[in-house]
Design a protein around this nucleic acid. Structure first.
Length: 491
RNA sequence: GGUUCCUUGGCCGAGUGGCUAGGCAGCGGUCUGCAAAACCGUGUACGGCGGUUCGACUCCGCCAGGAACCUCCA
C-alpha cells in the first residue's frame, strides 16, 4: 500500500484519493450480467476492468471482498411488458425451457467465458432469486419510511416524495424537473403517480412464470432492487466501491442510491466507478441493437464480420490497452494489432529467463517499476502502464543483445516485477504455444516432421525442407526458425 | 428535444499549457540456403474558425461531425 490509489468518482466527477472505510479492507460491488443470453464482447469490458481493480488492490495488500451479482429474475423487457413477462420467462417460452434452466445455461457460459478471459471469480456471487425475502424486507422499510406506495398489488418508489428530502439525480447529473419534462411516455397503465416512479415490487400477471408470494401480491421484485439489497447485505450499509457500465448510471444506479437512502437514511456507496462502452463502427455494441459479437464467436472466429479467431488474451489486451473510461472501437485491424502486441510482450517475458547478469546495471529498474505503478494508481491507467512495459521490452531485448547490462539483483527484481505486472495484476496467462499439451499425438507428429526437415536442411535438400514447411503452413501450423532450432505454433 | 461527453498520424489508442506516449501497419536494416518469425532503427498528428497567453493539441467561445443516457442494456 505504498502509493495511494486515485480513482475517478462518478458521484463527484473528479479524481479522488481512495481511502477505504476500514483500513486495509475494501468492499467492492459490481453489477453482473442478466443471464438470459450468451455473453458478448461488451460484457468483457466491466468484468476485465473490475478484475484489474480487484487484482491491483489485492496486490497492494488490501483484503478485498468483491461481490458481483447474477441477475436471474425481474427485469422487464419492452415488447414483453404488456404480457407481463420478464426477459427470462420470455426466452424460456421461445426455447421451451424452464426459466431456471435458461438461467443455468447462460450462467454456465458466462462463467466459462470469464475463466477463458482469466477473470478471477468474485468473493461472493449472489443471485437475485436467492434474495427475494431480503428484497421484500427492503420494500417494507421504504414503505415504512414513506417513500413508496402500493397500487393494485404492486409497490412503486415515490420519486417526487424522495426528492423533497434528498436529491434524486445526483449521480447522473439530472434534476427532477428535467426528468419530468423529458421522460418519454411509455408506461401504458398508470397505476403510478408519476411516470418516473419505478417499481419495487410488481404484481405478476397470470402468464408470468417467475413469481413469489408477498403481502402485496404474487409477483416479483423491481428492476433495481436486487443490487441495493445484495450489496449492503454482504458489504454493509456503507461500503467503498460500486462499479458497472456507464449505461447503468441512469436509471439503475440512480435508483439504487434512492432505494438505499430511502430505506436506511443515508447513501451506501462512497465511490462510483463506471466503465465506458465498446463500440462497433462507432456505435455501442448491444444486444438490443443487434450488432453484438458473442465471446464464443470471437474465440472461434465464427462470425461474418470476423477475419479470424481472437484468443481470450488478445481480447483482454485489447481492452486493457484503452483506458476504462474511454470508448474503444472494435475492428479486425485493432484486434490484430492487439494480438501482435501481446505476443511481443509475452516473448519478452520468456526472454527474461535467458538473460545473463553482469556486475553492473546500465538500466534503471526502479524507475520503470515506479512509472508502471504510478500509472495504475492514477485511476487504473492500464494503457500507460502497458506502454511502460513495452519500454521494458526494449530494455530486455537490449540486455539480451548485449548493448545493455543488468546486475543479478536487478535481474531478479525485473523478473519478479514482470511476473507481478503481467500475470498477477494485468491478468494475462500463457496460451496456445507449441506445447498444446492437450494433444500429445499432434505434438509428436509435428516434432517428427520438424526432425525430418532438419535432416533435409543438413543435407541441403532445400526442396524437401520447404515442402514440409509450406504444407504444414497450409494446414495451419506455423514454423519459426530460431537459433535454437525450429519452433512451431498453431495459427 | 433535454442531459453529459467525444473528435489525436494509414489503424487502434495515451497524454500534456513550452519537454519522444505506446502498439499495429509501412519503410530501412540484422539474422537466414530462401522465406517466415524474432530483433534493431525510422517518418507522418492533434475536426474547423476565433479568443486568452511570451507560447495551445492542451484553457475559453462559436461552428461542424459523432456518441452515451433520457426505455431493458456491460
Amino acid at each position: 500500500m505504498k502509493n495511494s490509489v486515485i480513482i475517478y468518482n462518478t458521484l463527484t466527477r473528479k479524481k479522488e484519493e481512495f481511502k477505504p472505510l476500514v483500513e486495509g479492507k475494501v468492499g467492492l460491488y459490481v453489477c453482473g450480467p442478466t443471464v438470459y443470453s450468451n455473453s458478448h464482447l461488451g460484457h468483457a469490458r466491466p468484468n476485465i476492468t473490475f478484475d484489474l481493480l480487484f487484482r491491483y488492490l489485492t496486490f497492494l495488500g488490501y483484503k478485498v471482498r468483491y461481490v458481483r451479482n447474477i441477475t436471474d429474475v425481474g427485469h422487464l423487457e419492452n415488447e414483453a411488458e404488456e404480457l407481463g413477462e420478464d426477459k427470462i420467462a420470455k426466452k424460456a417460452r421461445l426455447e421451451q425451457l424452464e426459466p431456471m434452466e435458461v438461467v443455468q445455461k447462460y450462467m454456465n457460459t458466462f462463467h466459462r467465458n470469464m475463466e477463458d478471459l482469466n477473470v478471477l471469480p468474485p468473493s461472493i456471487e449472489p443471485r437475485a432469486s436467492g434474495h427475494i425475502i431480503e428484497q421484500q424486507q427492503m420494500v417494507d422499510s421504504i414503505l415504512k419510511n414513506g417513500f413508496a406506495y402500493e397500487a393494485n398489488g404492486s409497490v412503486y418508489f415515490d420519486v417526487e416524495k424522495y426528492n423533497e428530502k434528498y436529491n434524486y439525480g445526483k449521480l447522473s447529473g439530472r434534476n427532477l424537473d428535467d426528468i419530468k419534462t423529458n421522460t418519454r411516455e411509455l408506461d401504458g397503465q398508470s397505476e403510478k403517480k408519476n411516470s418516473f416512479d419505478f417499481a419495487l415490487w410488481k404484481k405478476a400477471t397470470p402468464e408470468h412464470i417467475m413469481r413469489w408470494p408477498s403481502k402485496w401480491s404474487d409477483g416479483f421484485p423491481g428492476w433495481h432492487l436486487e443490487c441495493s439489497v445484495m450489496s449492503t447485505k454482504y458489504l454493509g450499509e456503507k461500503f467503498d466501491i460500486h462499479g458497472g457500465g456507464m449505461d447503468l448510471t441512469f436509471p439503475h444506479h440512480e435508483c439504487e442510491i434512492a432505494q438505499s437512502t430511502a430505506s436506511q437514511g443515508e447513501e451506501a456507496v462512497r465511490y462510483w466507478m463506471h466503465n465506458n462502452m465498446i463500440t462497433i463502427n462507432g456505435q455501442k455494441m448491444a444486444r438490443s441493437l443487434g450488432n453484438f459479437i458473442t465471446l464464443d464467436e470471437l474465440f472461434t472466429g465464427n462470425h461474418k464480420i470476423l477475419d479470424q479467431a481472437y484468443s481470450p488474451m488478445t481480447i483482454r489486451f485489447f481492452i486493457l490497452q484503452a483506458h476504462y473510461r474511454s470508448t474503444i472501437d472494435f475492428s479486425n485491424e485493432a484486434l490484430q494489432a492487439s494480438q501482435k502486441g501481446l505476443e511481443r510482450l509475452m516473448t519478452a517475458v520468456k526472454t527474461l529467463d535467458e538473460l545473463v547478469a553482469s556486475d553492473k546495471s546500465s538500466v534503471d529498474i526502479s524507475a520503470l517499476k515506479e512509472k508502471c505503478f504510478t500509472a495504475l494508481s492514477d485511476d487504473l491507467n492500464s494503457p500507460v502502464a502497458i506502454a511502460h512495459l513495452f519500454d521494458g521490452v526494449k530494455m530486455i531485448n537490449s540486455i539480451k543483445a548485449g548493448t545493455e547490462t543488468i546486475s543479478a539483483d536487478d535481474l531478479s527484481e525485473l523478473k519478479l516485477f514482470y511476473n507481478n505486472m503481467i500475470f498477477d495484476i494485468l491478468g494475462f496467462k500463457e496460451e496456445n504455444s507449441s506445447d498444446t499439451g492437450n494433444n500429445e499425438i499432434l505434438n509428436e507428429t509435428v516434432e517428427l516432421l520438424l526432425n525430418l526437415r532438419k535432416e533435409a536442411k543438413e543435407n541441403k535438400e532445400w526442396a524437401t525442407a520447404d515442402k514440409i514447411r509450406d504444407e504444414l503452413n497450409q494446414i495451419g501450423i506455423e514454423i519459426k526458425d530460431t537459433k535454437e532450432g525450429a519452433d512451431w505454433k498453431l495459427k
